[in-house]
Amino acid sequence: MSKIHVTTVVNGDEVEFLADPRETLLDCLRDHLGLTGSKEGCGTGDCGACSVTVDGVLVSSCLMLGVEAQGKRIATIEGMANGEELHPLQRQFVEHAALQCGFCTPGILVAAKALLEKNPDPTETEVRYWLAGNLCRCTGYDKIIRAVMDAASEMRGAA
């Protein structure tokens, strides 16, 4: 099978890779670009561990082909902190101990960031619905929701 040359922008940097057209965007991020922050929990769209944004839209990178990334702008967890400075969501997750094994965390952070860009002042119910596609087997969700709510209010205060 011939591979396809893909040029795309990931976290602001132009990158290129050769993809087998059957490979998912998640495979390409992890195996061709070495960006292993996005996780594969299921590979079938159920868990959200592979969440990234494509042209600003939250998607599961396991449900998109790498070749479909041609000409798009991708944002992953690796682009969330500003150098050593954590994003308020990341900091609140640490402060609230909103993670245990951490496998779900990159996906949840990317998803929560997309929510706060669309809705800076969500209700708890809105946060829970938005994150319904992000599964966590450890925390019981409560600390995650509280961390997102606190990050939202911190970011509103800072603005």
Partner: peptide, 9 residues
Amino acid sequence: VGSTQVQGR
């Protein structure tokens, strides 16, 4: 249909 992530596609 599906989650926020699925809705994006």
